[in-house]
Design a protein around this nucleic acid. Structure first.
Lengths: 157, 157
DNA sequence: CGGCTAACGTTCGGTCCCAAACAATGCTGG
DNA sequence: CCAGCATTGTTTGGGACCGAACGTTAGCCG
């Protein structure tokens, strides 16, 4: 690799940082999917959407998409899947027929109450190689990166 | 959110760490896709696969899959896409007809030589809110997380 | 009121993504 | 030799994913 890259004027620190962020995200996602989500037939994105709706409750789909970090087109499909499984419901906004409100069903709430502690336990296990300080420092650095990139792209909202 | 979660015995540091890793990975990926990859009609995964083959040169597909962090089934499709565009070639291993060797075409090499510096420039921009120390510290923490998870799952190789 | 324009969710086409089932090839012990 | 058995890449089915095009609804201003 040094071969191929020698002679180029590169920022190796940035390269290592970016590569590890992506690798870690993938590793964590796969682990949580396999240990917590797959046994309940949930995908990562399905889980994230459920989480967002669980926390916010009765939320418009465009906000769900933003919070979940996916496009509105994707969200339509994901919500369809979750609705088919009876975990959430869709209804037209009473004051604006363009908007759609989403909320968990009783079944969805029950699932989250049961699954979330398990999910968090596994999150703890995954990060158990880091001290509390390292965890918060890690989160802080990553938040700075996200904020930086958000500054590049003027809010499309 | 504090509402919904109060009364539960949670590891908030772990939760914040995991959420930020995933959010940052997504943000970085989207940014690099939009600024560097999309103008050349490349997807993130396509890029990663090209990168791996570029660096290693003449590599078996199973190793590409491992390095790129995707399943072999996915790789078949991605390589098909890249092959259709004339960026790499597939050929049967001379000593073992089960294996397949992949290598970049001249067109593929040319693309990487031109695109990689641009990609790295953007990686630098994305992480420019962090000091050199923070970048290496970030990478180190993330490597530790990955190593930890790898310890959970005995190597399936 | 009525035509513009903007905002919202859905649809569409193409790609990625995985696990599981599969086919083809190589290996090894009787 | 050859009958299991393991290994490798491909196929398949279901879902996620995006950007762009679309249809509907709202709001604005003449």
């Amino acid at each position: 690799m040094a071969d191929r890259l020698s002679g180029m004027d590169l920022d190796m620190d940035a390269m290592a940082a970016v590569q590890n962020v992506y690798r870690a995200a993938n590793t964590i996602r796969n682990h949580l999917e396999r240990t917590v989500l797959a046994p309940h037939d949930l995908t990562w994105t399905g889980w994230v959407v459920l989480w967002v709706v669980w926390i916010w409750g009765d939320i418009e789909t465009r906000h769900v998409a933003t919070e979940a970090g996916i496009s509105k087109g994707t969200l339509t499909g994901v919500i369809g899947t979750l609705e088919k499984r009876g975990l959430l419901t869709r209804r037209v906004h009473p004051d604006d027929a363009r908007r759609v409100l989403v909320a968990l069903t009783a079944k969805g709430r029950k699932l989250m109450t049961r699954l979330f502690p398990m999910f968090n336990t596994e999150e703890a296990r995954v990060t158990s190689a880091l001290s509390a300080n390292e965890k918060t420092s890690l989160a802080r650095s990553l938040r700075r990166v996200v904020a930086q990139v958000d500054d590049f792209t003027p809010p499309t909202d």
